[in-house]
Design a protein around this nucleic acid. Structure first.
Lengths: 209, 209
DNA sequence: TCGTTATTGGACTGTTGCGTCCAATCCTCA
DNA sequence: TGAGGATTGGACGCAACAGTCCAATAACGA
């Protein structure tokens, strides 16, 4: 079977300088994806904002626009996933995570660059492969939530009766929906209260001391 | 001050036949917006699928693509808003609403036409006016949720301690996020469980009989 | 220093798609 | 039936944009 060209550059050995150029292009693409969405991304714009030329872009991304967006998508989810994935095996860890998420969201919203909302904006992306990258990231968050809940049940901090899968789905949905809503209405009205209520619900399952 | 051209047709009195043509075009546009998103909407495609011509489209939508998308957006939110807005002033009404929403979501997902997810996909829409239409709809759902909670508090069905605004935000976020996630992962894994957990949380505030 | 390879600029082509325009046809009503 | 307005078809112009190509320069190793 023939392999699709992956994200790794393959035409000759790039030098440090070359990689830096590639990097600049990629960063610009990620920026556009987060701020204005895929629809707004056009190569000439990227070239202008990075002061590079067509030949450079196609040198480092032979697959053109598709490959650039694909690589940018992967970089994007990689960064945000690291940011939002912390250990969640105690209630205190959950509280910390909630506060941290709210802070991060506030910061990103200030500069109009909410990455979670930007991911949601692409559920109808024409490229199935890119949709999959985004969806997989969301799913891995969900698994992480569920694993945290189950860990707390094993440790006895949470009652066994709680449905770990459902609670994880709740958090996943609240995270996504809260980000989308705050972006849609242009204010920080949803994610924070919804996340706190969700946390309170989980705390309701705490084993009585 | 000069008024922007609104959504109402203004060039001459349209006949029944003319309005029908306008309607066909509009329906096709809504369909594309829901199924494939704004990025995929192009006039030639609309014309082909409705067997109409350029002159017809620009006759009924003198503002061209912008006006068409704007009108289609309004029609879209109007329809879905009616679908999801039921009285919510008793716990039983909430239960009914949850079941109905889940059913509707299941149906729409089957035909790959989840309208809530389609709305979320447009948080980065280049047209601020259209973003506003979508955001306003989400906000009006939220107000409706909050009003329902407060009504139950007034009637004594729910304890006064519950934070109506936060509970409404929870439902808004779960609705949005659940729809987005199900669309993103291509399965019905999120909205239903998350909605049920959210409902259970509200039920936890029921005044003891 | 010299040859090889990476890097760069930018002109050029082809396509897509929005919007304009004009002429032809249909409908209605007097 | 004839006039006037509504409706329709489709050719055309124009701009945006993806992608190709070639030649020029820079970097690097022998």
């Amino acid at each position: 079977m023939d392999c699709q060209v992956q994200n790794e550059y393959d035409g000759g050995m790039p030098t440090t300088k070359g990689l830096a150029t590639r990097e600049r292009i990629l960063d610009a693409a990620v920026g556009v994806l987060i701020h204005n969405g895929r629809e707004a991304l056009n190569l000439d714009g990227i070239l202008a904002s990075t002061r590079t030329s067509k030949s450079q872009l196609f040198h480092y991304f032979p697959g053109g626009k598709r490959e650039l967006i694909h690589a940018a998508t992967q970089r994007q989810v990689q960064r945000i996933a690291g940011e939002l994935t912390a250990p969640l095996d105690t209630l205190d860890a959950w509280r910390t995570w909630v506060e941290r998420t709210i802070r991060l969201h506030r910061t990103q919203t200030q500069e109009d660059a909410c990455e979670v909302a930007a991911m949601a904006a692409r559920v109808l992306d024409p490229e199935p492969e890119d949709r999959a990258v985004l969806g997989d990231t969301m799913q891995s968050w969900n698994r992480h939530f569920a694993a945290g809940i189950r860990a707390m049940q094993r440790s006895g901090e949470l009652r066994a009766g709680a449905d770990a899968g459902a609670l994880a789905a709740l958090f996943s949905a609240v995270l996504q929906g809260g980000a989308v809503l705050d972006k849609a209405v242009g204010r920080l009205d949803y994610l924070e209260p919804a996340l706190r209520v969700a946390l309170a619900h989980v705390e309701g399952f705490a084993a009585s001391e």
